[in-house]
Design a protein around this nucleic acid. Structure first.
Length: 287
DNA sequence: ATTTTCCCCTGCCGGC
DNA sequence: TGCCGGCAGGGGAAAA
């Protein structure tokens, strides 16, 4: 699933290619992608606009257009954003949802098997910032993301730390894969209440988040199933998972078998020795 | 206000 | 072999 490292990989590949290009044609084939806005309206708003920059915020990809217009895209589960050369005359990709044809003949193809991916056109910097600030919190790879920031975000939270990490308003860009990896790196059990982590644990978690994400970017993302970069190539992070998807295998740190459990409603991989389970604290203890 | 549950959607997988 | 229920999961809405 595209999380921060996957989206960042795509952004880095595409940013220099699209900067300064104009959208010559726009086609939205799937109304679900732009819902509730009609595809024709989105096409009209994109056609003729010049792409000034391609940015990322959490898992969102943002194309800044001229006239203070912004195209905000989310790949969700199975979305891909492919870069196709003008001379590439292979048949259209399966599950094609959107096609942007640039003035140099290149095409940007948004494909999405599961159809969860979205795109929204937002006019004006202020509305864009509102849209984003309602959805995403601090950028974990920004220098401003310090252990103190993480500690403040976690303060008072009773939710399991895994649910906390998956909440995009707490920390931006962390999904199921990198949450597992970060928690294992930090030696913290996913069901520990976020607000009850000690300072030392917050610092380990901070480091775990940053290092897991950075490694993911270095490896061009994780391609378990559908994820491909903008060239259609797989990442290699899936070959370096420390804990994710390793159920039954020995923990790389202690040798105990990795267990798969459920946390925050998501499949979660954990080493019961390296990530000690929280002591269940009761509110009312029946005799 | 925060946390939990349900739902969107499609392909895959195990069971019968 | 083939059908089918169950599952996966990001995020948003609704419910608790």
């Amino acid at each position: 699933m595209p999380e921060l490292p996957e989206v960042e990989t795509i952004r880095r590949q595409l940013a220099p290619r699209v900067a300064g290009r104009t959208i010559a044609r726009a086609r939205v084939f799937d109304p679900l992608w732009s819902a509730p806005v009609a595809p024709r309206e989105v096409e009209r708003k994109l056609r003729g606009r010049r792409i000034e920059a391609l940015r990322r915020r959490g898992k969102y990809l943002i194309a800044d257009l001229d006239e203070d217009r912004h195209l905000v895209m989310h790949l969700r589960m199975t979305g891909n954003l492919l870069w196709v050369a003008p001379e590439d005359d292979r048949p259209e990709r399966p599950h094609l949802r959107v096609r942007l044809t640039l003035d140099d003949g290149h095409r940007l193809l948004f494909t999405d098997q599961r159809r969860f991916g979205t795109g929204v056109v937002i006019d004006g910097t202020h509305l864009l910032e509102t849209y984003l600030s309602e959805r995403v919190g601090p950028e974990p790879l920004d220098p401003a993301f310090t252990p103190d920031v993480l500690a403040r975000a976690a303060r008072g939270r009773r939710a399991p730390v895994k649910a906390f990490l998956l909440d995009q308003r707490r920390v931006a860009g962390v999904g199921n894969i990198y949450a597992d990896e970060a928690l294992f790196r930090a030696g913290i059990h996913p069901l520990r209440p976020a607000g009850r982590l000690r300072r030392a644990e917050i610092e380990r978690l901070h480091r775990g988040i940053v290092e897991a994400l950075e490694r993911g970017i270095e490896r061009q993302g994780a391609s378990i199933d559908d994820y491909r970069d903008s060239n259609g190539d797989r990442g290699s992070m899936q070959d370096e998972f420390l804990i994710h998807l390793r159920a039954g295998e020995p923990c790389i740190r202690c040798g105990r078998p990795v267990r798969k459990t459920l946390a925050a409603g998501r499949g979660t991989y954990v080493c019961s020795r390296c990530q000690p389970a929280p002591r269940p604290r009761r509110r009312a203890t029946p005799a």
